[in-house]
């Protein structure tokens, strides 16, 4: 097991370097001169520009800039935006909003996705099964863009039962629509995954043995089928949770939520490179680390993974 963990960590190092370097290159190669843009139309002396550029290491070669950035990251100094705001403050002010949205979306995913998946997995071949399978396809083909406006129009404007946009009201009622929209992206996948996993386990020998021993059907489902079929589902949900917490540009834009996604989008448009790179990298690290944790968890729960070569 320890070998497996070490291997996963070693494998993550090139991925970390490669992806951060790529993000860094992408963002810093964006056109425009953000430092000059700070002053708008006002005249500014070359000396002032040079001082600011030195402050942000902008006159160094690209790779040195990247190393400065990594150094800042590892010494927990996230730096400041071009506008002079501490990046850590920016994150502290918008991340809670994304966290709330993501958590609520996650609840939807678990209740609807896993719940329906278990239900139809146990009733495979029934009408409810076919109906759920087809409607999950329909649901997944409605893009967040369309679903968002459809719900806004129906519940917000026509029926007037839910607030149309969120703005600064971060409460359950306001977040209901956006979190559902966010959740629909993965609900169909979760239903299918859960259903497949449940019906795989349902046909396993140990389930038949449990029934042969005379255990009640409810207990067979709870103890034998449910526990053994949840491993792949939990793995998927884990990775998805991180994705939810990384901010959703589109959903936050449609419902006007001041979260990570919206902030990143705004910063990209105005060329706030330091903030974009730092926030994106933080979530990248979160993604890579949680992937390792989930892989190791998976390997601990299912020893076949460790002894087999590598899961694709």
């Amino acid at each position: 097991m320890l070998n497996y963990v070490l291997k996963r960590i070693l494998q993550a190092i090139p991925v970390f370097i490669g992806s951060t370097l790529l993000i860094y290159a992408l963002v810093f190669l964006m056109p425009g001169d953000p430092v000059r843009a700070l002053f708008g139309d006002k005249p500014v002396s070359e000396a002032t520009l040079t001082i600011i550029r030195t402050q942000y290491h902008l006159n160094e070669p690209f790779i040195i800039q990247y190393l400065y950035f990594l150094k800042g990251l590892f010494t927990f100094d996230l730096g400041v935006t071009f506008a002079g705001r501490e990046i850590i403050d920016v994150i502290a002010s918008v991340f809670p909003n994304t966290l709330m949205l993501g958590t609520l979306a996650f609840v939807f995913e678990v209740i609807i996705g896993v719940g329906l998946g278990i239900f139809v997995g146990l009733k495979r071949g029934s009408f409810a099964d076919s109906f759920t399978m087809v409607s999950s396809l329909v649901l997944v083909s409605i893009p967040p863009l369309v679903l968002g406006y459809a719900l806004q129009f129906l519940f917000g404007i026509q029926l007037k039962v839910l607030p149309v946009t969120v703005g600064t009201h971060m409460d359950f009622l306001h977040l209901l629509m956006p979190s559902f929209v966010l959740a629909t992206v993965s609900i169909a996948t979760i239903i299918r995954l859960t259903r497949a996993s449940i019906s795989d386990v349902r046909g396993a020998d140990f389930v038949r043995t449990a029934r042969a021993k005379g255990i009640s059907e409810g207990l067979v489902i709870r103890r034998h089928i449910f526990r053994n079929s949840m491993i792949p589902v939990i793995t998927y949900l884990g990775i998805d949770l991180v994705a939810l917490f990384s901010g959703a540009i589109l959903t936050e834009q449609i419902f006007n939520i001041q979260g990570v996604g919206n902030t990143l989008y705004k910063y990209i448009l105005i060329g706030e490179a330091p903030a974009v790179v730092t926030i994106a990298t933080l979530f990248l690290i979160l993604y890579i680390v949680s992937n390792i944790v989930i892989d190791c968890l998976y390997a601990a729960l299912d020893p076949r993974i460790r002894y087999g070569k590598e899961v694709a």
Binding site: V15, S19, I249, V276, L284
Partner: peptide, 9 residues
Amino acid sequence: IFISLPSML
């Protein structure tokens, strides 16, 4: 590396 990049961003 490519999968871990936030795609929309």
